[in-house]
Simulated assay, not measured.
Amino acid sequence: MSDQHTPDPDQQSGWGAVPPVASIRGTHEGPAGAGFTTPAPRRKLRRGQLVGIIAGSTAVVLLLVAGVVGFSVGSATHSADRPVRAFLDDLTAGKVTDALDAAGIDRTKSDVLLTDAAYAKATATVTGYRVAATRTDGDTATVRAYLRQSGREVAATFTLDKTGTDWGVFPVWELQAPELGSVDVSVRGPSGASVQVAGTSTKTSKDGAISLRALPGTYAVTYDGGKWTKATGGSADVGGFGVGASTPVQMTAALTNAGEQAAKRAVDAWVDGCIASNDAAPAGCSFYAYGENPAYTYTNEKWTLESRPTVAVGSWTSNGWLVSTTTFGRATFTADIAGAGGTGTASAGPLNVNASGYITGFSSSGATFRSAVGNGSSDTGS
C-alpha cells in the first residue's frame, strides 16, 4: 500500500489553478463556508435628483462664463482708446461741438472756425481713422492713431489721464484736450481788413494778421475788400493735431478800378483844399509863395490852379498805397497890396504842385489821401 499526497491548490499548474467562474464574476453565491460574499446592489438616483445636479452644475458654468464675458466687456468699454474713438467718431460725423466738448476743448468768440458750419465748408477733413497702438504707464495712457484726410493717413497722438475706477476694477480714462492747429492769414493792406475763412467772416488785427484755431482740414481763404480793393486768396492746410500753425496765407491788397478812381479823386480833393487856402503858404501843401514886403498890406490873397498834377497809384507799402506824381501841376498866387508906395497886385508862380503821398484806406465815401510833402496833413475825397 502506498501513500497518496494531495498537492496544494495554490501551487497547482494548469486548469486546477483557475478559480471557479462563479467566484470571479460574483454573479452567484458560492458554496457554504467558502468565504464568498455578494456585493450590495448600487442605488439608482431618482430623476429629480439627477436633474437638480445637472442644473446646478450648469448654473455654475454659466456664472463662470458670464463672469468672464462681463469682465471682457468691462475691460473693452473701459479701454484707454474708447474716449479717443468717441472723439474721432463725432469729428468724422461733422459733430464739431460734441467732439470739442468730449475732448474738453474750451472755445472763445475768436474761435470762429470751431463750429459745425465752418467745418462743413472745409475740405480734406477727417473722414476716418484707425487706432494703431495704445500704451499705458501708470495713470497716463497714450493712444496713437492715423487720421484719414483726403485719401492719406496723418499720424496723431492723444494723451489720457486716469481719473478713477468703476466698481473698483475698471479704470476711467479722460481724454486730454489735443493741441489744435491754426489757420494763419496775413494781409498787406489796411489794418482790420475783412477776410473769409471757410465762409466765415473775420477781420485782421492792426498789424494785418490773424491766427485762428482749426481742426484738421483745408480751409479756403478769401479777401473781402468790397468795391474798393481786391486780393488773391489761397488755402491753409491743417494736418492732424499738435502740428502748430499752417503755412500762412499771405495776400496783398490792390485797388480795383473803382478804388483807383476814388484814390485819384482823393488826390484832387487834397489839391483843391490847398488851392482854396487864403494863405501864401498853405499848411501841409507842397507849394507856397514867399517874399512878402512888410511895408505893404496884403489882401484878397488867392491861389489859382493852372493845371492839375497827374498821378499814378502803385502797390501797397507800410504807409499805404503809394501815390506818385508823374506830371507836376501848376499854381499861381495873387494878392492886392497897399502901402506907402501906393496900391497894386502882387503875384507868385506858376509854382509846381506835387501830389505825391499815400492812400491810407477807404470808407463808404471814398479814399483817404495823406500827402508825403508839406506837413503831411490829409484830406478825403470821393
Rank of each mutant, 00 (worst) to 15 (best):
A17P: 01
P19C: 02
P20A: 10
V21D: 12
V21W: 07
V21N: 10
S23W: 10
I24L: 15
R25D: 12
G26D: 03
H28T: 14
H28F: 07
E29V: 09
E29A: 12
P31L: 05
A32N: 09
G33H: 07
A34P: 01
G35W: 00
F36V: 07
F36T: 05
T37H: 12
T38A: 10
T38N: 04
T38S: 08
P39C: 03
A40P: 15
A40N: 08
K44G: 13
K44H: 06
L45K: 09
R46W: 01
R46Y: 06
R46E: 09
R47W: 09
R47T: 12
R47Q: 13
G48R: 10
Q49W: 08
V51S: 13
G52Q: 06
G52T: 09
I53E: 09
I53P: 06
I54N: 02
S57W: 01
T58M: 14
T58F: 15
V60L: 15
V60E: 03
V60M: 15
V61L: 15
L62H: 00
L63T: 10
L63I: 12
V68Y: 04
V68L: 15
V68H: 03
V69H: 03
G70V: 05
F71N: 11
F71T: 10
S72F: 08
S72W: 05
V73K: 07
G74N: 04
S75F: 02
S79G: 15
D81N: 15
R82C: 00
R82A: 08
P83F: 02
P83W: 00
P83N: 02
P83V: 03
P83R: 01
V84E: 04
R85V: 14
F87E: 08
